[in-house]
Design a protein around this nucleic acid. Structure first.
Length: 898
RNA sequence: GCCGGGAUGGCGGAACUGGUAGACGCGCCGGACUCAAAAUCCGGUUCUGGCGACAGAGUGUGGGUUCGAUUCCCUCUCCCGGCACCA
């Protein structure tokens, strides 16, 4: 055995062993053997990466967690599958293409090749025989195939949606490409624009997606809460306010000139949804979106209002922007009629009401809604209280002063005609019933969740399989002609989708009539690709069907691992997609992921610089020096050419390509080896917690592995140790030998619990470090002593092997084992090694720690109590007082209260 | 703005079910080895007072419940994730 730990050689040898033995190729049972999920299978899946170019520390964290679990579960005797693939479509490839003139396909595939090497160098127990990328036509053809099935069922449907529009580049922008309301390349003010898009009817599944969260007890509570809030079920009422004559005339006039849009004149009433129909008599205004037909009709007659509508169209579509912008409104001069009193209520255009969210209109009740209150105060609108908060003050302070939370509380209705004097629920019921009788409303459940728009006006994605024919209209591509293959040699230039200018793709014969037709150029949202990839890993080679019987064996995923940033969108879409496939008879499961582990983000500092013209650029923290300058800090970045530049500090954020703040694990792997990189990542923080990156402690992890190597080396170079239980009787050990043995077995049990139940790899590693410290202090070289050390070192190596598999592979052999540790069954801790005769209890006086006493492990309460009161220090603090109370917590402490 | 999470020594973190706050590691200080350095090994390291035994304070802020609170409840501050076209 080498005296020195040489990670490169150790890792090469271990990886060769796994490759030669196909150690991680998952095997299905013989056909027909198991209909659904045989008891011993374990499908361990980490979220597949976007091939951004290089791995970053977030990847190392994600995949090391999954790998440690995979290896641990293998050692528990489970048939484990841990596959890997590539989420290969998406925006960064187009950005790279624009920057470097390389086709997205080439850039993506080069990145995949490089990152695959990195993953392999890290020694992950992946079944590479199942690898695929979502940009492979053999994968995305099934996106297209299922899209067509959904379209047939009406789950996929077409309507207009709002997008960010860059008026200079004449292109749709992703939210990420909108910075402070401006296009990132052009700096032009972004506009909202309505375009036709395909949507998936996820709201039809809202009730099930919400209800099934209760059954997902293998999911973190925080994720379930976030999803429930996102779906946002609320019970309320739909109320129709009939149009007054002025509104009706305006709509009719607009319809005549075509200014009012499609819906103009069609609606006899303005519909809204409210959860507070009990406040209906407090309505003093209505607010509609700028794109609402009433707003457009009024704008056609009022240039000032039209200017305001145009202003509302500027800015991004992002909810965070809309929620934080200044609330503005303008009156239309048009009115609707209160459904009960018939009084006219003026309609306002408000920038915070969005078309496409519900009805594009809300009723304004300033007395009982905070946002309406502020809007009314700002615009001089009446505030009419109609609910008297129960147990609230007897005065009506609404007219002046700021909003009080009590204004929004439930209470008894007042000034509400025949509905006065009712409690919340009674008022809601009575008013809803009366509305229904008049045909002006009904009870309704509303979800916050909106349907999923999947059309993207972008090149590097899965083509939507449709053809537009001048004769036949929109025609689906027949299944036999799938996949619609994306040409891979185009280079986008920022001026829209290059597919729209590429004739070989664009020009097609209509599948129905054979005449000349135009192919659809929109591609699918990349969330589509990631909504079912976990199914495909079970059957990546099937070129005749999307899924097959192997999916029934492997699914659901037993452990899914990924970043908390996916808590809502990806995980919700994947759940939805699975339910759709179930309803189409393709899979037999209701939920895709039985257990979910959400790792915390790995953060790093962000530095950027905004040139006078063009895009803001980001600098990697590794290239930035922090300089103290008279109390203030300055940040100086060094460019590749050696020149320097003062940059701005933008705080901490997730490691990402776009912020250029990733840390490439490659340098760590080269310097210390994969095991050190893996170990440090697991040791640095509990995996569910956010981690601010710093490689300060890496050295310590390497030192630990070297100490372990040295300890094994010293032990084995003294020759074979006697075997405990055969050459040395366990009962014959002396006290220090028993203590080391107990530490070893406690460690074994703790590590199994930390990995298997708690998933706290950091404390598992710490426990093994303590064990090695105990071994180092143990100097007994007698045969019995060496037998105990042999066992303790074996336990240390086994316990670490899920985290640091390479060094464990080597050390296991050095400890005299012919079989590879990767195939070892995880041993149980020996209960007889764990027994302890005497234990130490803590004694408190008035809750403050004062002393410690040693008692027999099985001492009864009276004995413990007497021992505590007899303790000298305790008597000093208790003095002559008689204890009021003595609390004894078995095996833990005694608290004397005086 | 809304939803979810977090805050513990100089630093990363431990304390799992309300019961010894600071395990383990980093850093730092001292020592051994060495001509010297690196590496390694040994000891110390929450803060304040004390030579010391020891005492007091202490888990972002302010309050509460309890014999006992890092842990439970309320308030506030700051940080992180998500907010539907980054993935």
């Amino acid at each position: 055995m080498d005296e020195r730990y040489e990670p490169a050689a150790v890792e090469r040898a271990a990886q060769r062993h796994w490759a030669d033995h196909r150690s991680f190729a998952a095997r299905e049972p013989a056909p027909g053997a198991a209909a659904s999920g045989g008891g011993d299978k374990f499908y361990c899946l980490s979220m597949f990466p976007y091939p951004s170019g290089r791995l970053h520390m977030g990847h190392v964290r994600n995949y090391t967690i999954g790998d440690a679990l995979t290896r641990f579960m293998r050692m528990q005797g489970r048939n484990v599958m841990q596959p890997m693939g590539w989420d290969a479509f998406g925006l960064p490839a187009e950005n790279a293409a624009m920057a470097n003139g390389v086709a997205p396909a080439k850039w993506t595939r080069d990145n995949i090749a490089y990152m695959k090497k990195q993953l392999q160098a890290l020694g992950f127990a992946l079944d590479w025989e199942r690898e695929f990328a979502t940009c492979d036509p053999s994968y995305y053809r099934w996106n297209q195939w299922l899209f067509l099935r959904m379209r047939e069922k009406g789950i996929a449907y077409k309507r207009t949606g709002v997008v960010n529009w860059d008026p200079v580049d004449q292109t749709v922008l992703a939210n990420e490409q909108v910075i402070d309301g401006r296009g990132w390349r052009t700096g032009a003010l972004v506009e909202k624009r309505e375009i036709p898009m395909y949507y998936l009817n996820i709201t039809a599944y809202a009730d099930e997606l919400l209800g099934a969260l209760k059954g997902l007890d293998g999911w973190p509570e925080r994720v379930r809460t976030m999803q429930a809030n996102w779906i946002g079920r609320s019970e309320g009422a739909e109320v129709a306010f009939p149009l007054a004559d002025d509104a009706r005339d305006a709509l009719a006039a607009a319809a005549a000139t075509g200014a009012g849009g499609d819906a103009a004149g069609a609606a006899p009433a303005l519909k809204v949804f409210t959860t507070r129909v009990d406040t209906l008599f407090g309505v003093t205004f209505m607010a509609v979106a700028a794109e609402h037909p009433l707003a457009l009709a009024a704008g056609a007659r009022d240039p000032a209002l039209q200017a305001f509508i145009d202003e509302c169209r500027r800015g991004s579509t992002m909810e965070a922007d809309i929620a934080t912008m200044e609330k503005k409104g303008r009156r239309t001069g048009l009115h609707v009629l209160h459904p009960f009193t018939g009084q006219p209520v003026e309609v306002w255009v408000a920038n915070y009401v969005l078309m496409g969210y519900g009805e594009g209109a809300v009723m304004g009740v300033p007395a009982h809604d905070e946002r309406d209150f502020e809007f009314a105060q700002q615009n001089g609108i009446d505030i009419r209280p109609v609910v008297h908060p129960e147990g609230g003050v007897d005065v009506w302070p609404w007219a002046k002063g700021p909003w009080q939370p009590s204004y929004g509380e439930h209470g008894l209705t007042v000034d509400s005609g025949e509905f006065s004097g009712l409690g919340f629920q009674a008022a809601v019921d009575a008013i809803t019933t009366a509305l229904e009788a008049r045909g002006l409303g009904r009870k309704r459940v509303q979800f916050r969740l909106r349907d999923w728009g999947i059309s993207r006006q972008r090149y590097w994605g899965c083509p939507i399989p449709l053809v537009h024919c001048p004769k036949c209209g929109e025609v689906a591509v027949p299944d036999a002609q799938l996949p619609v293959v994306l040409p891979e040699d185009l280079v986008p230039d920022g001026s829209g989708n290059p597919l729209g200018k590429h004739k070989p793709f664009l020009e097609v014969a209509c599948p129905t009539c054979g005449g000349p037709a135009r192919r659809e150029t929109d591609t699918m949202d990349t969330f589509v690709d990631s909504s079912w990839y976990f199914l495909r890993f079970a059957c990546p080679d099937n070129d005749r069907a999307m899924v097959d019987e192997r999916v029934r064996y492997w699914l659901p995923v037993d452990q899914y691992i990924g970043g908390i940033e996916h808590a809502i969108l990806h995980l919700l879409y994947a759940r939805f997609w699975t339910k759709v496939m179930r309803d189409l008879g393709l899979v037999g499961i209701d939920e895709p992921f039985a257990n979910l582990f959400t790792q915390g983000m790995v953060l790093n500092h962000i530095y950027s610089h905004q040139p006078a013209e063009g895009r803001r650029s980001y600098f990697n923290p590794a290239d930035v020096d922090v300089v103290e300058d008279g109390g203030a800090k300055r940040y100086i970045a060094t460019r590749a050419d050696g020149s320097t530049l003062e940059v701005r500090y933008d705080g901490l954020g997730t490691m990402s390509k776009s912020k250029n703040n990733g840390v490439d694990p490659q340098s760590l792997v080269e310097k210390y080896g994969a095991d050190t990189a893996r170990l440090f990542m697991m040791f640095a923080a509990p995996p569910e917690q956010t981690l601010e990156w710093s490689d300060e402690g890496v050295q310590g992890s390497f030192r630990f592995l070297r100490r372990l190597w040295k300890a094994v080396h010293e032990h084995v170079s003294a020759g074979p140790a006697p075997v405990l239980g055969r050459e040395v009787a366990r009962e014959a050990l002396d006290a220090p030998q028993k203590t080391l043995r107990r530490t070893a077995h406690q460690t074994l049990a703790k590590v199994a619990d930390d990995i298997g139940r708690r998933r706290t790899f950091n404390t598992a590693v710490a426990a093994v470090m303590e064990l090695l410290n105990a071994v180092s202090r143990f100097e007994d070289r007698s045969p019995a002593g060496r037998a105990v050390v042999q066992e303790a070192l074996e336990i240390a190596v086994i316990a670490l092997s899920p985290m640091v598999p390479h060094i464990s592979h080597a050390l296991w052999q050095e400890l005299g084992h012919a079989d590879a540790i990767v195939d070892l069954r995880w041993p149980e801790a020996d209960p007889s090694a764990l027994v302890q005769d005497a234990i130490t209890l803590v004694v408190q006086v008035n809750g403050k720690l004062r002393s410690q006493i040693a008692v027999a492990a099985d001492a009864d309460e009276a004995t413990v109590r007497a021992a505590a009161l007899a303790d000298e220090t305790v008597r000093r603090f208790v003095g002559d007082d008689t204890p009021k109370k003595v609390i004894v917590v078995p095996r833990k402490l005694v608290n004397v209260v005086v």
